[in-house]
């Protein structure tokens, strides 16, 4: 397969924000049988602390792959990613897991709550993994559940909640440990436009209130409209970087 020469804008960061995420020359090649699929082709990108950034692009443009590499869920074939100056890439499985636990919150398209846990237990789970004591976990999580309007549903299991409610629990789970950044892969894809709008609003508010950096991979136009920065990807490269 011919690999096009990377042509992309220089990594940019909003002028008033220090770079939290530094992506340098990141490539990701998957092998599907004998065929190599170049999901990323040497991406350079800086994202500042406290940004509310959307990675957009058609299917196969590499936005989910970039999100996974930034979040140390996937290892790049080449290149590096630093979060707050710390290398997120090149880590062992265990070190990668620890890095995610203490630095990154995730929100997934399919909510991905643990079905055997209640809403509260799901929301506190990452804190529990961090070894935060029970009372402290409760003190952190309950106000957040109240903040997202689900305090009275804290004891419900995921199957007793709507999609929007489940996704709000997932957002609480992501932000409860106060991570440096939250990565959200198509967080609104399974929601109707009203619920989707509410969720985006909630994340914007949390971004403003807590200064947590949010990076999305999304097709959702509502989300793109409300993002303060939109990075357009195409064929594994940054095509355009819009700062609003």
């Amino acid at each position: 397969m011919n690999t096009p020469q990377p042509t992309q804008p220089a990594p940019s960061v909003q002028a008033d924000k220090p770079a939290l995420i530094e992506v340098r020359g990141v490539s990701r090649v998957y092998k599907q049988g004998l065929v190599e699929v170049h999901a990323l082709r040497g991406v350079d990108l800086d994202i500042g602390a406290g940004e509310f950034t959307a990675l957009v692009g058609p299917s196969g443009s590499g936005k989910s792959t970039l999100l996974n590499v930034i979040g140390a869920l996937d290892a790049p074939t080449a290149g590096t990613v630093r979060i707050g100056g710390e290398l997120a890439t090149g880590r062992s499985r265990a070190a990668g897991a620890n890095f995610r636990l203490h630095n990154v919150g995730f929100v997934f398209q399919a909510y991905n709550l643990l079905p055997v846990f209640s809403a509260f237990e799901n929301a506190e789970y990452t804190l529990m993994l961090q070894g935060v004591p029970r009372a402290e976990r409760k003190a952190i999580v309950m106000p957040l559940l109240e903040r997202v309007g689900l305090a009275d549903m804290a004891n419900r299991r995921p199957h007793e909640l709507s999609g929007g409610q489940q996704q709000r629990i997932a957002v609480v789970r992501a932000i409860a440990p106060r991570p440096r950044l939250v990565l959200a892969d198509e967080p609104t894809a399974n929601l109707d436009s009203h619920t989707s709008g509410e969720l985006i609003g909630l994340m914007q508010e949390l971004n403003a209130e807590h200064g947590i950096t949010f990076v999305f991979a999304s097709h959702d136009e509502h989300l793109m409209e409300r993002a303060r920065r939109v990075v357009h990807l195409r064929d594994g490269l940054v095509e355009r970087d819009e700062v609003r």
Binding site: R93, A94, A97, L101, L129, Q130, R173
Partner: peptide, 15 residues
């Protein structure tokens, strides 16, 4: 998938 989720959330392979 669920074990993958636990890993994504920061649970180490050992755990």
């Amino acid at each position: 998938r669920e074990l993958g989720l636990l890993s994504a959330l920061g649970m180490t392979p050992q755990r």
